[in-house]
C-alpha cells in the first residue's frame, strides 16, 4: 500500500532520466527557432518529428532491449511473463497470436495487427538516445538489412508500424494514446528526412 507513492516517484524518475537522455524538446519549441540553413531545419524538424513517434510508447513498447514486450503508457513489462521467444513471436505454444490477432479486438481490448510480433532483438531501441536509435535505424545490421528506400516503405506502409495511429482500446475500453505526431506528418517526416540525406543532427 505504501508502494503507490513509490511507484509514482519511480515513474517520475524514469521520465526524468528519459528526458535527460533523450534531450527531447517539444516540437513547438522548434517553430520559434530561427536557423540560417532552411534545408537543414527541415531535415532536423523531420528528424525530430520522426523521433517523437519512434520514441513514443506505442512504438517503443515493441522495441525492447530486454526481450520483454512492454504494455501501456507506463511501459510496464508484459503481464504473465510473455517474452520474445526464439523468433520474436513469443513461445512455442503460447505465442503472440494466442491472444493477438491481425486486428484490434474491441471486445477484449487486446490490440492486434498483421504479423504482430516484437521487433527483432537487433532493433532494440529501449533506453537508447535518439541519435543511437537513428544510427541503428540506418545500420543494415540492425535494421533488418533494409536500404533507405526499404526503410521508407517499412515505416510508411507497414501495417504493424501504422497500427500506432489505430491502436484500439485497452482492457477497460478506453482508447490507447497515439503518437504526438499525426500519421500523415510522420510519413512526410520520414520521407523528407531520407530525402534530405538521413542526417542525424548531432553528428
Amino acid at each position: 500500500m505504501k508502494q503507490k507513492p513509490v511507484y509514482t516517484f519511480l515513474i517520475l524518475m524514469v521520465i526524468g532520466v528519459f528526458l535527460v537522455f533523450a534531450g527531447a524538446p517539444k516540437i513547438s519549441d522548434y517553430e520559434i527557432v530561427e536557423v540560417e540553413n532552411t534545408v537543414e531545419v527541415t531535415s532536423d524538424d523531420s528528424y525530430n518529428k520522426m523521433m517523437d513517434v519512434l520514441t513514443h510508447q506505442r512504438c517503443m513498447n515493441c522495441h525492447p532491449s530486454d526481450h520483454i514486450p512492454k504494455q501501456g503508457d507506463t511501459s510496464h513489462p508484459h503481464h504473465f511473463g510473455m517474452a520474445r521467444g526464439e523468433d520474436d513471436h513469443g513461445f512455442e505454444a503460447t505465442s503472440c497470436n494466442t491472444c493477438h490477432q491481425s486486428e484490434n479486438n474491441l471486445n477484449s481490448g487486446v490490440p492486434g495487427a498483421p504479423h504482430w510480433a516484437l521487433a527483432p532483438a537487433s532493433m532494440a531501441w529501449e533506453g537508447l538516445t535518439r541519435e543511437q536509435i537513428a544510427e541503428r535505424l540506418l545500420d543494415k545490421s540492425t535494421n533488418g538489412n533494409r536500404s533507405h528506400q526499404e526503410l521508407i516503405e517499412h515505416m510508411t506502409e507497414d501495417d504493424l508500424v501504422l497500427w500506432a495511429w489505430e491502436p484500439g482500446v485497452d482492457a477497460d475500453g478506453k482508447p490507447r494514446t497515439i503518437p504526438p505526431v499525426s500519421k500523415e506528418d510522420f510519413k512526410k517526416a520520414v520521407e523528407n528526412w531520407f530525402a534530405d540525406g538521413a542526417i542525424i543532427p548531432s553528428k
Binding site: M1, K4, H79, F80, G81, A171, D172
Partner: peptide, 24 residues
C-alpha cells in the same frame, strides 16, 4: 496480490495487473 483504491475506484480490474501466482 493486492487491491488498490485510486480516486474512489478499486483497482486493478483484470488478471495480470492483479498479479497472482502462475505455474512458474
Amino acid at each position: 496480490e493486492q487491491m488498490f483504491v485510486e480516486d474512489g475506484e478499486l483497482t486493478p480490474t483484470i488478471y495480470g495487473p492483479y498479479q497472482m501466482a502462475l505455474m512458474k
